[in-house]
C-alpha cells in the first residue's frame, strides 16, 4: 500500500500527517519525503541516514567532427536546450529534460550522453519500531525535480509493506511525480479561502490521475465552512479533522509529534489508516 500526502496549498499539514500516521501504525512502514526542494520530515522523525546516492540525468554532448549542422536535434528539443548555429552547436544542460530525443534522431550518431548530477537521495532508519526513511535533496541551481522524486520513490517498501509519500505542494510536475502510481492520495487542507482554492486544483489533478482520495481538514475551527460544502458537493470523504489547537501548534514548533503529546491521537491516525484501506483497493492493505 502506497499512500501519498498532497495538498495544493503549502503549509497545510502534509508533513504533520505523514509523520504522525507513520508513527501510529503498528506495522512496518517506509516514509519518503518527496518535497525535494525543501524536505523537512526529518525534523520530526530524526532518521539515522545510512546511505546516500547521487541522482544523475543524461544530457547531450555533440561531436562536432561528426555533426553536419542539420538541426534535427534542435528541432526535436521541446525545451530549446540545443542551439545549432552556422558553424557550431551549443547545449544548455540546465534546460534539458533528459528525454534522449536528440540522441535517437541524430543521423550521424554525433550526439552522445554525458552525466549531470541533479541531487542526492538519502535513506536510513527512524529510531521507532520498523520504520525506514528516505528523502531527496535537489542541488542548488538545479530545476529538474521529477527525476529526484522518482529516485526517492524507488526506495518504497516491498510489496506487502506500507509506504507513505510526503508530496510537495502545488499541482505541477513535481506533485504529479510524487502522486503517480500510488494507491491512495490524502489531500490535506485548511478551511480557509486560500486552502479551498488550492484544494480544488489538487482535487482536479488527483481525479485526472484516477487515484482514490480523501480529505483531512487541518486547523479545523478556523476560517469558514466553504471547504465542508465543497467536499460534500464533490463527494470527497472527510477522513479526519485536526483542530486549530495551540498545543498541536506548540508540538509542531518543537519538532514533536502530536501523538507523543496527546496519546489519543495515535488511535485517531490508526482509524485514518483503516478508512484509507476501506476506500483504496483493500487487497493492497497489510493484514
Amino acid at each position: 500500500m502506497i499512500i501519498s500526502i498532497a495538498s495544493g496549498k503549502g503549509g497545510t499539514g502534509k508533513t504533520t500527517v505523514a509523520a504522525n500516521l507513520a508513527a501510529s501504525l503498528n506495522q512496518p512502514v517506509t516514509v519518503l519525503d518527496c518535497d525535494v526542494e525543501e524536505p523537512n520530515l526529518h525534523l520530526f522523525l530524526h532518521p539515522e541516514i545510512q546511505s546516500r546516492e547521487k541522482v544523475i540525468a543524461p544530457v547531450p554532448e555533440i561531436d562536432l567532427d561528426r555533426c553536419t549542422f542539420c538541426k534535427k536535434c534542435m528541432d526535436i528539443c521541446r525545451f530549446n536546450a540545443i542551439a545549432v548555429t552556422a558553424n557550431t552547436v551549443v547545449t544548455f544542460p540546465e534546460l534539458c529534460h533528459s528525454c534522449g530525443g536528440c540522441t535517437v534522431i541524430c543521423p550521424e550518431n554525433a550526439v552522445t550522453e554525458k552525466e549531470r548530477i541533479l541531487g542526492t537521495v538519502e535513506t536510513g532508519t527512524v529510531p521507532l519500531p520498523d520504520m525506514n526513511f528516505g528523502q531527496g535533496l535537489l542541488d542548488i541551481g538545479q530545476v529538474m525535480v521529477p527525476p529526484v522524486i522518482r529516485q526517492v520513490k524507488s526506495h518504497r517498501a516491498p510489496d506487502q509493506g506500507i509506504t507513505l509519500i510526503d508530496a510537495p505542494p502545488g499541482t505541477s510536475c513535481p506533485v504529479i511525480a510524487a502522486m503517480k502510481d500510488t494507491d491512495f492520495v490524502i489531500l490535506v487542507t485548511e478551511p480557509t479561502p486560500f486552502g479551498l482554492n488550492d484544494l480544488k486544483l489538487a482535487v482536479e489533478t488527483v481525479r485526472l490521475l484516477n487515484i482514490p482520495h480523501g480529505l483531512i481538514i487541518n486547523r479545523a475551527g478556523m476560517g469558514d465552512d466553504a471547504v465542508y460544502a465543497y467536499a460534500k458537493d464533490k463527494n470527497l470523504p472527510v477522513l479526519m479533522e485536526i483542530p486549530y489547537d495551540k498545543a498541536i501548534a506548540q508540538a509542531y514548533s518543537k519538532g514533536d509529534l502530536i501523538i507523543s503529546q496527546q496519546e489519543d491521537y495515535k488511535e485517531k491516525f490508526q482509524t485514518l489508516y483503516k478508512k484509507i484501506c476501506f476506500l483504496a483497493d483493500s487487497e493492497k492493505c497489510a493484514p
Binding site: F79, N80, A81, A83, V84, T85, F92
Partner: peptide, 12 residues
C-alpha cells in the same frame, strides 16, 4: 511566446 529558450532560438 516560447516557454523557455527564446533567446537561444533567436540566436540560432
Amino acid at each position: 511566446d516560447a516557454f523557455k529558450g527564446a533567446g537561444i532560438q533567436a540566436a540560432a
